[in-house]
Amino acid sequence: MNREHVKYPLYLIVHPFNAYSDLKYERNKRHTLIASLIILFLMIITNVLSNQYSGFLVNLSNPDDMNSLMEVVYIVVPVLFWCLANWSLTTLMDGEGKFVEIFTSTCFALVPMMIINFPWIWLSNVISLQETAFYYFCSSAAYLWSAYLLFVGNMTVHQYSPSKTIGTILLTIVAMGFMAFICLLFFGLIQQMISFVHVIYQEIMLRN
């Protein structure tokens, strides 16, 4: 049973069509949800590790700006945005997927991006500048693979045709932009309100 849980994501990344329809129709929802949360967690962990321990030649980020908590945000927020935007759109566009299915399919699509970190965190420490081409090749391949899995997952979960899936994905990206904008607006206004109240409080306190 336990072994099967580990095997399933690996089976999914090579047989996405079969595995995603299993995920939608056959498998236990609770187990897949737990598995996808574990994948998300591992993704965060590997990203933090790669930021900290990748080889000098490929680690081009300023160590002063490195913040593990922000790494969590950088991964969780886009995934949630994607799922929310996709869910909001597909409910209007006759998609058959439930929110849980969208979330799990998205998380399972991240598996190649997560797996590629494991060897390359070590390997990037023993390569020269000329050999970094392999590093960049592998990571771009992983990104493309993940994008493909995301596409297949979305298609299977909603039972869409390929062209409709592409359309939905493009619309989802636009919707994510809108959501980001609204969030910024929201937090901007909240910040203004808080500072307003704070200033009034300060003013009253200092007057007396």
Binding site: F56, L57, V126, S128, L129, Q130
Partner: peptide, 18 residues
Amino acid sequence: FKESYDYANYSKAYLLYR
């Protein structure tokens, strides 16, 4: 070279070291 962010020379030194 690491201190000076000199990637090209770091790589050169690293190859020799390896």
